[in-house]
Design a protein around this nucleic acid. Structure first.
Length: 613
DNA sequence: GCCGTTTTCGGCCCGACTGTTTTCAGTCG
């Protein structure tokens, strides 16, 4: 037997937990607070990484990760080589293993968790939650110094929500949150004291999944507006109510948070509550170097101002700070252009803003057509038909101002047909759709052109679920994974690359095949796939279907850096779905995509040429 | 422990809220 060269695999989330545990242990041991912050920052950074840290380590680029310097890089290197880190062992020495699960309980931080494990000699991480529950019920907590009746109750409810798994994210896809928010916004705007309403937080940044809905209202009469908000007809209960806003629970179990603010300092509030947290931290660090201290109320000057962007009429003497009506003015005071909310993730946007290199993001108006639309033409497929005819879909596309429409029904089922039958079905479809289109065109005289496409299953082997002779009846194929989602990484990668090698397989449909809240995406070597796409004129779909939003934003950014082209589609199965396009555009924007990176911002002729290339 | 368009040394985001205190520590976003 040769000497074992086992490499230990740790996922990013395992490493994040480990780094956070180290930070907590250091805090308990009263280490230098900036050392603690360094570990937390490293954890944050790994959490937001687009690739696996293990892969970064393989490439020897650990120190290229922000927040990871020589020391932490050496620790992580040791972790991958040996499966543990000696230095961390020392840091954890003397701390109960039962401490670490407690860190995930809401309301419990390192100090309190440590106190509890020490006072009660709790050592078993598997039973520590229920052990503490029993102690709290017997009122053993309230008598501890620094604790009290309320702390005991808080601990109990924290433990309860932890054991119920509420700690796990219960988030909804962006489009649902968007519609829900719009209803509340419509309601708020009916009040005469409301000047304007904006969404805040992850919803404003267009994150693919949303927890709570955060809203802002501009008003000079905050109490009145908060009161009106708490009388919303779909409210189940008021969670919190104060001068600056309120939090309500809707009947469908979703939470809506409203903040009210006067016009004069609306901008700073909007900026602060839009986040992200990491963007705000980076922005404050940046501002501090200029002698400016940022908060949700405005900007304080620590040093003498050298910036003409601060106007004396905006100075609030009582608070000792400058106030801003708009975000544009707020960012402007820092010498930066306004950064689009979708980019505010501390992913290089502040650096880009400094250099005036922010992307000119694609907008819904740039989109000239939908390329992935299912009609009700019955090809006898194994997946769903659309609900509407080509004619209905063309009418709706005309309404949306499109220049073209790509009809992409599912391929005929392989199980129920012979190859000859499939070829014949495809030939008939092409003829019938062409006739329908010409009839519509002659009647409506609208400048829309059709693309005759097909969404073809990628079989587990990588072969396409359509006989070769049938491809001549389509302009191109969108190829998609609809089965066998759990093949290994290398097999999945090979499967997709094989499929994309077909000359008519121009577009990879909903690439990861994830279903938000239901199914993780397939595991593949995306870098290999992106590289192939860029070199061979293959495009990646950004699918706007609410549960898909696939390719996910982080992979979009990754693909963009490899110069892959995108096509933003709705995957509509009904005319009403065509308006989901904006959500795909949101995903693209979060991936820093400009109009020039998106194929369906091109005109018909140009796109036709690309399809044939 | 990390990092650099004021720095390789000397800095490191900011405020709200809560509970237990009497001036603050811990937690959170």
């Amino acid at each position: 037997m040769s000497k074992s060269k086992t490499v230990h695999v740790f996922t990013n989330s395992e490493i994040v937990k480990l780094l956070r545990d180290v930070a907590a242990a250091l805090l308990i041991k009263d280490a230098n607070r900036f050392r603690i912050i360094a570990y937390e920052k490293a954890a944050d950074s790994v959490e937001h990484l687009t690739s696996e840290l293990k892969d970064v380590w393989d490439e020897g680029k650990l120190e290229g990760v922000p927040g990871i310097g020589p020391t932490i890089a050496a620790h992580i290197d040791e972790l991958f080589r040996n499966g543990n880190v000696k230095h961390f062992g020392k840091v954890f020495h003397g701390l109960s293993p039962a401490l670490f699960p407690l860190l995930l309980v809401p309301g419990l931080g390192p100090k309190k968790a440590f106190r509890l494990t020490r006072e009660f000699q709790l050592t078993n991480p598997k039973t520590v939650i229920s052990d503490l529950q029993k102690l709290a019920l017997r009122h053993k907590i309230a008598v501890l110094e620094g604790f009290g009746e309320k702390s005991e109750q808080l601990l109990l409810s924290g433990l309860e929500s932890f054991s119920k798994g509420q700690i796990k994210e219960n988030r909804m896809p962006l489009p649902y949150a968007d519609r829900l928010a719009q209803e509340v916004i419509d309601y708020l705007q009916k009040h005469p004291a409301v000047v304007r309403v904006d969404v805040l937080g992850s919803l404003r940044r267009k994150v693919a999944t949303i927890g709570d809905i955060d809203l802002a209202a501009m008003t000079e009469n905050p109490l009145e507006v908060v009161k009106y908000f708490t009388k919303y007809h779909k409210l189940s209960k008021i969670i919190d109510q104060g001068e600056k806003g309120a939090t309500i629970l809707l009947t469908i179990g979703r939470q809506v948070d409203l903040r009210v603010q006067s016009k004069k300092s609306y901008g700073a509030m909007l900026q602060y509550f839009t986040g992200s947290k990491h963007h705000n931290i980076k922005l404050r660090e940046f501002a501090l170097k200029k002698g400016l201290s940022l908060s949700e109320h405005g900007i304080k000057a620590i040093k003498k101002l050298q910036n003409s962007n601060f106007k004396s009429q905006n100075y609030n003497k009582k608070l000792g700070l400058y106030e801003f009506e708009s975000e544009k003015a707020f960012y402007g005071a820092l010498g930066l252009p306004e950064i689009p909310p979708e980019l505010r993730e501390d992913a290089g946007e502040i650096e880009a803003a400094q250099q005036h290199k922010l992307p000119n993001l694609v907008t819904l108006k740039d989109i000239k057509g939908d390329f992935h639309v299912h009609s009700n033409y019955d090809l006898e497929p194994s997946h769903d038909l659309g609900a509407n005819s080509l004619t209905d879909l063309l009418n709706q596309s005309a309404q949306l101002g499109y220049s073209y429409l790509g009809i992409s029904d599912h391929n005929p089922s392989m199980k129920n047909h012979t190859e000859v039958q499939i070829v014949s079905l495809m030939k008939t479809r092409r003829e019938k759709l062409e006739r329908q289109f010409m009839a519509w065109k002659n009647r409506e005289k609208k400048p829309i052109q059709p693309f005759y496409l097909l969404e073809v299953d990628i079989l587990p082997s990588g072969l396409l679920a359509l006989p070769n002779d049938a491809f001549k009846y389509i302009d191109a194929a969108i190829v998609s994974v609809h089965s066998s989602f759990t093949q290994g990484r290398s097999e999945t990668t090979k499967r997709i690359l094989t499929a994309l090698a077909h000359p008519k397989a121009k577009i990879l449909g909903h690439p990861t095949a994830r279903l938000i809240g239901e199914r993780e995406g397939i595991d593949a070597d995306w870098n290999a796939i992106f590289t192939y796409c860029a070199a061979n004129g293959r495009a990646l779909e950004i699918n706007s279907w609410p549960e898909r939003l696939d390719l996910p934003d982080r992979l979009v950014r990754e693909a963009l850096s490899r110069k892959v082209k995108f096509i933003i589609n709705t995957d509509a199965h009904h005319v009403d779905h065509l308006t989901n396009m904006k959500y795909g555009v949101d995903v693209a924007r979060r991936g820093w995509v400009e109009a020039q990176d998106v194929l369906n911002t091109m005109g018909y002729n140009e796109l036709s040429k690309w399809l044939k290339s």
